[in-house]
Amino acid sequence: MAKIIVVTSGKGGVGKTTTSASISTGLAKHGHKTVVIDFDVGLRNLDLIMNCERRVVYDFVNVIQGEATLKQALIKDKRVETLYILPASQTRDKDALSLEGVGKVLSELAETFDYIICDSPAGIEHGALMAMHFADEAIIVTNPEISSVRDSDRILGILQSKSQRAKDGQEPVREHLLLTRYNPERVVRGEMLSVGDVEEILAIPLLGVIPESQAVLTASNQGVPVILDDSSDAGQAYEDAVARLLGEKREHRFLDTQKKGFFKRMFRG
């Protein structure tokens, strides 16, 4: 049966789209048939990160409104077999997503896909609620920063009360914490909340820690999900997170400052 995973955060700009692109690419690389859906209707960014912006003909809203079939709207990734993208509309607004319409598209996708990744827009309004409504699991993308952590806690509250699983009294949505843009040097200096701090406050299982990394920008410039840059720290951290999502036990990496960091700081002019 297909698993629906929402990538959400409350706060904007914390790394949801970056994460959606890498997690979906990673799952597909492991051989799972995966589709990633851009719920950020009106903005559409996922297509750029996935390097398919010039291949968008129909979008999610077209499918919901019956103007195109799923088959027409789905874009097949050129790098990874079994990966598909369902882009967002740029011309409509988020209200074009109806609960009924989203539910219908998801259940049609569930017939053929193993994983459905929903890239949520920021906020706690309609678009974000639509993205999380049918989720089986949720990846809570959080930055080690005060307002991001607070927003993550609010999103957890909404998942626990408003999702379909909550309404049906089913087993609750499985929650995963993904801490991104982590900077161990600043943590050591006491300037940034540590992984332990954030875990203690949010009290949900840790899926991974993605370091603040140059590689993310370099990758997005080229339309490559950073997980495909397997020489980079962020790419490897995402690969670890995907393996954990699939049930593997892996040590968390990139949590400590590099040893040379101290000397670098000392001798830098």
């Binding site: 005060i146 300037e191 909340l193």
Partner: peptide, 17 residues
């Protein structure tokens, strides 16, 4: 030796959350 502001952040978060 700046004060460790992360611990202030943590404390404030624990209360508000």
């Amino acid at each position: 030796k700046k004060p460790a502001t992360a611990s202030i952040a943590k404390e404030r978060l624990q209360i508000i959350v």
